[in-house]
Each structure stands twice: as structure tokens, then as C-alpha cells.
Design a protein around this nucleic acid. Structure first.
Length: 229
DNA sequence: GTCCAGGGCCGTT
DNA sequence: AACGGCCATGGA
């Protein structure tokens, strides 16, 4: 049986239920009047090729020290930042990347994310991509989960299930992204699309973690009948 | 001990 | 354009 992004979304939602994403500790930001969108941005860099459990440790360190804010990180000593995020791995490059991002936001937007996100999608995307250490997936995660823009995030998991099922969406990041957006765009209006992109990416992550692992557990897979792997 | 995780950069073909 | 090496910690 042939499967499309629309069907994939319906089945995964039906089988796995609504996921709550992106994981952000909103009570922390209420108590500290900080911007949860910046936590998403930092998390997006920290989670590059890294297990989320390790990212949480790094984020917790930043919260304990109360430095999960644009202005503070743009001024922080780099060596100190390295120590804080050490559990997330790749801490040398990630510390530099996070500091660069914070400095950019501080210098160009006075640390005000409303100013930053109050621009057109493609402007923000190109700006993020111009920063060292922010590639297409990190940029799109920030746009979708921090900026609430309608853009579909493609990751290694998405590529894996496209290959295995298969869904012929292309090979490159941009091809796969445009394919999913075109298909889902046929069925949902723009308001709804942001929500669908958000949920589908979350569903794909949970699904791959539980079933479509590197060594897959096909016997209990909920979409086995659509799959040729 | 081995494998792997919600990428991206840089140098080489 | 495509590919390989590299970055690093912690859990399974």
C-alpha cells in the first residue's frame, strides 16, 4: 500500500497520540520572566546529533545559574559556558555557536525576540543560516518551535522513514521539506499547517525512537503494512 | 566494551 | 555536488 505524508500523519497520530513539543519548562520562564523561545533556540543547537537527555542536563545547568537569557549569554565568559553545557557533548563548538547566536540577537535586536521574529519567514531563515553552526534543521526547528512559523523540519529520522517505507520525497533536505509541505498543503489551511508540521515532526521522532530504530522492530510496528523494508 | 543520539563544518575528491 | 572525518558526553 502506498503511503503519503498525509496518511503518515493520520496513522502516527492515531497510533501514538498527540505529543507535546517542543519540551520547554514554561513554569521556569514564568518565575524568571525570561523568554521560552530562547530556550528553544539554545536547545536546538544543543541537541545537534545528541540525545535529549544530555541536552536537559545542560539546560538545567543554565537555569540553575539563571543565565538562560540572551543578554547574559552574549556577555558570558566562553570558558564558563563550556563548563555549563558540557553534558550535551561537542561542548566546545556548541558553546561558541550559542554565544554567537546570543550576540547576534543582542547586537541587532536589543535581545528582543519579538523584533527578531517579527520579520518574514525567509528573512529569518536566511539570517539564521548565515550564522556559524546553524544549518537547515536547526534553523527550521527554531522557526517552527520558537517562531511558530509554518515550516516542516526534516531530520535524520525523517530521511530514514522516507527511505524505508518508501516515500519518494527526494534526497536533499530542501527536496524532502518541499515535498512534505506540498503534500500537507493540499489538505490543510495555513493556520492549521503550523500545527500539523509541529505535530508530525514530533510524531516522527517518537515513532523512530520506539520502532524504526537503526535496527528496526518491525514486528510491533504500527505502520508495517505500508512498509517495504 | 560497543553503539548510538532530534547536525553542521570543513577539507578532499 | 558529494563524501568522510571530526566534534564528545552519557545511557542502553
Amino acid at each position: 500500500m502506498k503511503i503519503t505524508p498525509n496518511i503518515l500523519y493520520e496513522i502516527l497520530l492515531d497510533e501514538l497520540g498527540i505529543q507535546k513539543w517542543w519540551p520547554v519548562d514554561s513554569s521556569y520562564h514564568k518565575n524568571h520572566s525570561s523568554d521560552p523561545r530562547f530556550e528553544v533556540m539554545v536547545g536546538a543547537i544543543l541537541t545537534q546529533n545528541t540525545a535529549w537527555s544530555n541536552v536537559e542536563k545542560a539546560l538545567t545547568n543554565l537555569k540553575i545559574k539563571k543565565i538562560l537569557e540572551i543578554e547574559k549569554i552574549s556577555n558570558i565568559d566562553l570558558e564558563h559556558l563550556r563548563e555549563m553545557i558540557k553534558p550535551s557533548g561537542f561542548f566546545n563548538q556548541k558553546a561558541q555557536r550559542i554565544k554567537n547566536l546570543a550576540s547576534h540577537l543582542h547586537n541587532n535586536y536589543h535581545s528582543d525576540l519579538n523584533c527578531f521574529f517579527d520579520q518574514e519567514l525567509f528573512i529569518i531563515r536566511n539570517e539564521l543560516l548565515s550564522l556559524n553552526g546553524i544549518g537547515p534543521e536547526t534553523a527550521d526547528s527554531i522557526l517552527l518551535y520558537a517562531g511558530n512559523f509554518p515550516i516542516f523540519v526534516v531530520d535524520a529520522y525523517t530521511k530514514r522513514i522516507c527511505k524505508r517505507l518508501p516515500i519518494k520525497a527526494g534526497d536533499s533536505y530542501d527536496e524532502i521539506q518541499l515535498f512534505f509541505q506540498r503534500e500537507l498543503n493540499k489538505k490543510y489551511n495555513t493556520e492549521k499547517l503550523t500545527q500539523i508540521y509541529n505535530e508530525l515532526h514530533a510524531l516522527i521522532v517518537i515513532f523512530v525512537k520506539n520502532y524504526c530504530k537503526k535496527r528496526p522492530e518491525c514486528c510491533k510496528c504500527p505502520i508495517r503494512k505500508y512498509c517495504n523494508f
